Simulated scan of single mutants.
Amino acid sequence: MRRRTPYTDWLNSPDPVLALAQAELAFYERVRNSSRRWYRLTELGALATASSTVVAAGLSAPAWLTALIAGGALFFTGLRQVFGHGPRYVLAAQSHETLRRAVNRYRLLPADERDERARGELLAAVERVGDEELRQWVEQRNQTSSPLGPTPGGPPLP
């Protein structure tokens, strides 16, 4: 998941770690909501066009119409596979929820207890969420792409 522009306003905040965590939280919320909308759109589009293809063929619709609807089904299937809005939605929702809980724990502390240790724990939570997101993203990319050359550590391809 990419960020459109680097966000550095948190550096000038009275509590920069909290501001950073809230900025990250807002980012994951935007990505989660956008991915959820795109996921629903692609799934409904694939479902509607695939079922319409069957209905059009059953009603003996002109071949060009049936082919056009089938092309739409293929398009939505490709859109689903290329952009992976479903996994992106799940990953952003998981990251958002984990970070939301860490921010809530920090904000529930009385102001005088928000010391360096508490800020360090919040910063560690922000970094863990980022690390986990990156790890899962790499894992998903490795599952969906095939290597173009020899497998690292394996025998050369014939």
Rank of each mutant, 00 (worst) to 15 (best):
M1W: 07
M1G: 09
M1L: 12
Y7V: 11
Y7R: 12
W10D: 12
N12G: 15
N12C: 13
P16N: 11
V17H: 03
L18V: 08
A19F: 10
L20H: 14
L20F: 03
Q22S: 02
Q22G: 01
E24S: 13
E29A: 14
V31P: 07
V31W: 03
N33M: 12
R36H: 13
R37I: 00
Y39G: 00
Y39R: 00
Y39S: 07
L41M: 00
L41Q: 12
L41I: 11
T42V: 06
L44T: 07
L44C: 02
L44H: 12
L44E: 11
A46K: 15
A48D: 06
A48G: 06
T49Q: 04
S51A: 10
V54W: 06
A57T: 04
G58D: 03
L59G: 01
A61Q: 14
P62S: 10
P62D: 15
A63G: 07
A63M: 06
L65F: 10
T66R: 04
L68Y: 08
A70K: 00
G71Y: 06
A73Y: 09
L74R: 01
F75V: 02
G78H: 05
L79K: 02
V82C: 02
F83C: 02
F83A: 11
G84F: 04
G84P: 06
G86F: 01
G86H: 05
P87C: 05
R88Y: 01
A92P: 05
A92E: 05
A92H: 02
A93W: 02
A93E: 04
Q94P: 04
Q94C: 13
Q94K: 14
S95N: 03
E97A: 13
E97H: 15
E97K: 08
R101C: 00
A102Y: 09
N104A: 14
Y106A: 11
R107E: 15
L109T: 02
P110D: 15
P110I: 06
D112Y: 07
R114T: 05
R114K: 13
R114Q: 09
D115A: 03
E116W: 05
A118G: 10
A118P: 13
A118S: 10
A118F: 09
L123E: 09
A124H: 08
R128F: 02
E132D: 13
R135K: 12
R135L: 01
V138L: 14
E139Q: 14
Q143H: 07
S145A: 15
S146I: 09
G149N: 13
P150N: 15
P150R: 12
T151N: 10
G153L: 08
G154N: 13
P156N: 06
P156F: 03
